[in-house]
Write a protein that binds this DNA or RNA. Structure first.
Length: 224
DNA sequence: CCAGACGTTGTT
DNA sequence: GTCTGG
DNA sequence: CCAGACGTTGTT
DNA sequence: GTCTGG
């Protein structure tokens, strides 16, 4: 799955790598959590340009009465995304890319009391995009909330020893297809596969280094 | 027909 | 909103 | 994902 | 142990 990730690149690089209309405003982060605001790249249907927008991580279906459901919909299984009521509308009409430069999976070692976080990145890719969906939810008082979810797939052989599943990382060559509002759903589903194992980089120590390099306090939630 | 669910993950 | 179960 | 909380009663 | 909140 994918329950935490990092995004530390400059807005300028992000704009370049995702062909954004303009530079997004965001602060580099090394511990992005569910229910926080995350950056999502969408295709603006008005002008055909790519925009980066903020979404609350945890998709709330438009029909939900209680928005608390979003906290559990931080991931969507690629295998069932086109049929599940919570996701199929978003899959048809509201696809996006969530930029990241790494993500965490927790390894549960038998005999060890605590799970160990492993930081996972892609070789030679300073930033990449998670295949994602977004929704707009309207509350009883009429206020709107834009939310998103990250699509998961079976772990590749590099990640499998740590965890059974992993987020879908779309190679840059697939970005345009994924964001195309007229794309054929059946073809889109073929894009949702595990990233090639050869490109995977794992680290047990980088997380602490990342925090230090940004002068951020060590985060008890992850590393103690 | 209406009522109620609608999701993921890990763990057992 | 739309499907499933009763 | 992890961290942190984890309650009852009667009344409207 | 399990749910909620971030």
């Amino acid at each position: 799955m994918c329950g935490r990730f990092t995004l530390r690149v400059s807005p300028a690089l992000l704009a370049e790598m995702f062909a954004l209309h303009r530079k997004p405003e965001f602060v580099p982060q090394t511990n992005i959590c569910p229910t926080q605001l995350v950056l999502g790249v969408v295709l603006n249907q008005e002008n055909g340009l790519r925009d980066a927008r903020l979404f609350r991580w945890g998709l709330i279906p438009h029909w939900a009465k209680d928005p608390v459901i979003g906290a559990s919909l931080i991931n969507a299984r690629s295998e069932t995304i086109s049929t599940k009521p919570a996701f199929r509308a978003a899959f048809q009409r509201r696809r996006c890319l969530i930029p990241a430069d790494g993500f965490y999976e927790w390894r549960n070692t038998p005999g060890q009391k605590k799970k160990q976080p492993i930081w996972i990145a892609i070789r030679n890719q300073p930033v990449f995009g998670f295949a994602s969906l977004w929704e707009t939810w309207t509350s009883a008082d009429g206020s709107e909330l834009n939310t998103c979810t990250i699509i998961t797939t079976q772990a590749n052989s590099a990640v499998a020893p740590i965890h059974q599943r992993m987020p879908v990382i779309l190679p840059e060559a697939f970005h345009e297809h994924w964001l195309d509002p007229l794309a054929d759903p059946a073809e889109l589903l073929t894009l949702l596969r595990p990233f090639p194992s050869e490109g995977i980089v794992l680290s047990t120590t980088v997380a602490d280094e990342l925090l230090a390099s940004h002068g951020l306090p060590r985060q008890r939630t992850l590393f103690d």
